[in-house]
């Protein structure tokens, strides 16, 4: 279990993470979704004790990462940026990591086989593709057979087969009762992998809910309404958290109220409505909805492209 409490990171005058609080439960895959620059990697580095929080705390199984007696056996992490000396072979990298915790050579071979690196393990990491680099990072994360696994954008650069493999791996790890915390800027990826979703934008938590709630757009449901008195209906429905948009002659789109509430208001106010259609938000739409005021890089969201260029030093 990972618990963050008012976790904050300020770089100079830039607030990368602005006082987030969340809990990542064991036994399920928790997705950490947010556009690039939202603060996902920074949050994960703070969990791993690599960046010191400006304020707030984060613990893993109740203890700050650095205070664990055997950190690699508690938490394994694949961090966004490469964390390997590229002139060393994958095998020697893992061997050196394993040595810090007396993890046997046998386990090094195990994780190499698990991640499909057997053929390239003796080669210098320099020549690795992005996907092989990700596999090596995952191998390193699994080395200590940790209870908690943190993966920052693990599917970046993986081929479709690799993507499916990561998906199955994280689900399997969660089914064993482990805590799995996985970041991505792609809603579609999260929809297929995560059980629970924490959405972050500009360093703030925007949503923290089971994935199915976010998919069905709870609290963000949209309804198409036709009425012969659209102006009057707009007036009647207006309220906090509700937005009504006149889309066409007699056609309204209402957000923030469910169809029953709309029908009730219409009845109470004697307004005739002749269409009432709940609009199921797609995942992508729900994500855009959630982050629309929080997006730092609009172009990224509108194109939906998996941009790998980083906005700052990770």
């Amino acid at each position: 279990m990972i618990e963050a409490e008012g976790l904050t990171k300020v770089y100079g005058d830039k607030t990368a993470v602005g006082g987030v609080s969340f809990t990542v439960q064991a036994g399920q895959v928790t997705g950490f979704l947010g556009p690039n620059g939202a603060g996902k990697s920074t949050t994960m580095r703070m969990i791993m004790g690599l960046d010191t929080p400006t304020a707030g705390t984060v613990t893993v199984n109740g203890v700050p990462f650095a205070r664990h007696a055997a950190p690699l056996r508690e938490i394994g992490a694949l961090l966004d940026a490469k964390a390997v000396h590229t002139s060393r072979s994958a095998y020697n990298h893992l061997l050196a990591m394993a040595a810090t915790h007396s993890i046997p050579r046998k386990r090094v071979h195990e994780v190499i086989d698990m991640t499909g690196l057997a053929e390239v393990a003796r080669k210098k990491v320099k020549g690795f593709s992005l996907g092989m680099g990700q596999r090596l990072g995952i191998a390193a994360a699994l080395l200590g057979d940790p209870q908690t696994i943190i993966l920052d954008e693990p599917v970046n650069g993986l081929d479709p087969e690799g993507v499916v493999w990561v998906r199955n791996l994280v689900k399997y790890l969660a089914s064993e009762g482990r805590t799995v915390f996985l970041s991505s800027h792609l809603m579609s990826e999260m929809a297929l992998t995560a059980d629970h979703l924490i959405v972050i934008g500009r360093g703030k938590i925007i949503a923290d809910a089971p994935i199915k709630d976010i998919i069905t757009g709870k609290g963000h449901s949209r309804t198409r309404v036709r009425s012969d008195q659209p102006d009057r209906l707009m007036h009647v429905l207006a309220g906090t958290g509700v937005s009504v948009e006149l889309q066409d002659h007699e056609l309204l789109e209402v957000t923030g109220l469910d169809p029953r509430q709309i029908a009730r208001s219409a009845l109470d106010n004697q307004v005739l409505i002749y269409e009432l259609t709940p609009l199921q938000a797609s995942l992508e739409e729900a994500y855009m909805e959630l982050t629309k005021d929080e997006v730092e890089y609009h172009s990224l969201i509108t194109t939906g492209a998996p941009v790998s260029a980083q906005s700052g030093g990770n």
Partner: peptide, 29 residues
């Protein structure tokens, strides 16, 4: 299997997860 065997995580002794980074081990690394 992706991990090191089903149930291993649950079966692990939480109080004593195994050897940690003692100075000698870090030196070896």
């Amino acid at each position: 299997q992706p991990a090191a065997g089903p149930g291993r995580a649950a079966a692990r002794n939480a109080a004593n997860p195994g050897p940690g980074p003692s100075f000698f081990r870090v030196l070896n690394s």
